[in-house]
Amino acid sequence: MEAALKTFFSSTRFAVAGASSDPTKFGHKVFAWYIHHSLPVTPLNPRAPTITLQSKEYATVPSPSGLSDASQTSLSVITPPKVTAALLKEAKEAGIPAVWLQPGTFDDEVLAYARANFEAAIAGDGGRGGEGWCVLVDGEEGLKKAGRKREEGWKL
């Protein structure tokens, strides 16, 4: 998984599928993680034109095919497994190289598809958390593996 983490965080851009303005949802927390780490991130949400985080609005893109530089974008996924399956097919067609499937976003079939169709797929058993690989728990280590230096002000 070390190589997958390095590949994922070596991208120049990031996107969060399932981003939300609701601070109780993981789509909000994961999007906030990228913002708080000063990483260039685009929220994906087909039903909301913007996502609000700490009183600031961020324009959304409805799907991976709407990303301007998909081939340089790693995708964090926070959607139900049935939605994730369709999302991954579109992400592959768009040229996204790496995906991070948060716990609860995949079943065995979706996980197999991700591992077979992306340069890097982070998901499943492992990580430091009890439920599997989670960017909120394991993201800092991934940033280090990719050689990204911690910047002042990184806090959640």
Rank of each mutant, 00 (worst) to 15 (best):
G27P: 03
V41P: 04
Q54H: 15
F9M: 15
G126Q: 08
K92V: 15
A123E: 04
G130V: 01
D125N: 13
A94S: 12
W33P: 02
V30S: 01
I35R: 00
Q54E: 15
V99I: 08
L75E: 05
G127T: 03
I96C: 09
T84S: 06
I51A: 06
E119A: 13
E119H: 11
T52G: 08
W33R: 01
S63P: 01
Y58D: 00
T12W: 14
A59W: 08
L39V: 00
A98H: 07
A98T: 07
T60G: 12
A86S: 05
S65M: 11
L88R: 02
A70T: 06
Y34N: 08
A98L: 15
G130R: 13
R47V: 07
P49K: 13
E119L: 13
D69I: 04
A15I: 04
L87R: 06
Y113G: 03
A116G: 07
V99F: 04
G27H: 03
T84D: 05
G27W: 00
F9I: 13
Q72V: 15
L101H: 03
V135Q: 07
A123F: 10
E93C: 08
S21Q: 06
D69S: 14
A19K: 08
L75N: 00
V16N: 02
T24K: 12
G95Q: 15
G124S: 06
T42Y: 01
P80R: 02
L67N: 07
S71Y: 04
S38R: 14
K82A: 05
G127F: 06
G130Y: 07
G124T: 11
G104A: 03
A48S: 10
G132I: 11
L88P: 09
A15Y: 04
G18E: 03
Q54L: 01
V77M: 07
P64W: 00
Q72P: 10
S38V: 10
A70Q: 07
A120I: 06
P62D: 12
S10C: 04
A70D: 12
Q72L: 14
T50D: 06
E119F: 05
I78P: 02
